[in-house]
């Protein structure tokens, strides 16, 4: 007779405990999600009692001492910085990704990909420092004079370029991954009806990986939109309506970092900053929902 193996009761109990611990962890994640939302909402109620949300979103004066919390210039600043950054980053990243995935010789591809990974891992504060050392003087002395503008270099344009560089590795690495995942037979199918490589890329590769490209762009947007420290170091930090991209401005996330020191001094301002954080959270949430819908539709349509 062989010895009976294991003690089933003991194992069952361990299974029960382990599974429930995992469940608690999982619940924690969703609770955290709601907790952040509710707490931010609760803390921003104070400023919302004083001023209506419409006034806050569309009024252009930020003057906490007078109890004025117009976010319009900051929202415009955020849109400008994020928009310009993506305008720069999307074409450059997509073109680089195609080159790396489709055109580059294997040796070069193997060399570039780790570099992109490293670039993705560089902390934002280091990006900020480098932008402050390199980009700010460049914009001040070279780029702005080209357009006949005088600037300190601490401006919306500088912040946007900094962000664009931060977004490069995110979009590139995701796109390269999805381009490489396309079955080679699909490319062969296109090539063998006499399409050139570029036509294949344009009409087949792009199309087949459009869900991943979209996801990459959304992720890049999220990074750009929520970036705090690097922008804070180069954007100028003045919450007034910018008249050109070479003017200093302020973004939502950066505003919180700028004003945190005064956070507890004025309760109303604290509440206003909580509202800003709430806006950040809600926008990220909305974009994620949008992303889920777009991805679901794209995937359903082409099954790739």
């Amino acid at each position: 007779m062989r010895k009976k193996l294991g003690n089933m009761n003991k194992r069952k109990i361990r299974d029960l405990i382990g599974t429930n611990l995992m469940l608690i962890g999982t619940l924690f994640a969703s609770v955290l999600f709601f907790l952040i939302f509710i707490l931010l909402f609760y803390r921003s109620a104070l400023v919302l009692e004083n001023t209506s949300i419409i006034d806050i979103l569309f009024s252009s004066t930020w003057n906490p001492d007078n109890g004025q919390f117009g976010l319009a210039p900051i929202i415009i600043g955020t849109i400008l910085v994020t928009g310009i950054a993506l305008l720069i980053a999307i074409p450059i990243s997509l073109l680089s990704a195609i080159y790396i995935a489709e055109y580059a010789p294997t040796k070069i591809r193997r060399m570039i990909r780790p570099f992109i990974d490293v670039l993705a891992g560089v902390p934002s504060v280091v990006y900020g420092l480098c932008a402050f050392l390199f980009l700010v003087p460049l914009v001040k002395d070279v780029i702005a004079p080209l357009f006949g503008v005088r600037t300190t270099g601490l401006c919306i344009f500088t912040a946007a370029v900094t962000l664009a560089v931060m977004v490069f590795p995110i979009i590139i690495s995701l796109c390269v991954e999805s381009f490489c995942a396309i079955p080679i037979a699909l490319k062969e199918a296109s090539l063998s009806v006499g399409a050139t490589k570029w036509e294949t890329v344009k009409k087949v590769v792009f199309r087949a990986s459009s869900p991943s490209i979209l996801a990459a762009i959304l992720l890049g947007f999220g990074r750009a939109f929520g970036e705090t420290i690097a922008i804070n170091m180069v954007v100028g930090g003045i919450p007034v309506m910018p008249s050109s991209v070479f003017q200093p401005g302020e973004t939502l996330a950066s505003l919180i970092a700028s004003k945190y020191g005064e956070l507890m001094a004025i309760p109303l301002q604290e509440s206003a900053l909580m509202l800003v954080a709430l806006i950040l959270f809600v926008v990220v949430l909305l974009f994620n929902i949008l992303g889920v819908f777009i991805l679901r539709r794209a995937k359903k349509r082409w099954n790739y």
Binding site: L186, E188, A189, L191, S192, G194, R207
Partner: peptide, 18 residues
Amino acid sequence: PDIRKKMGLISQKPYPLP
């Protein structure tokens, strides 16, 4: 591409374009 146009390819598994 002109050479390839002269010769159609049918692969093992069908790969319809997306």
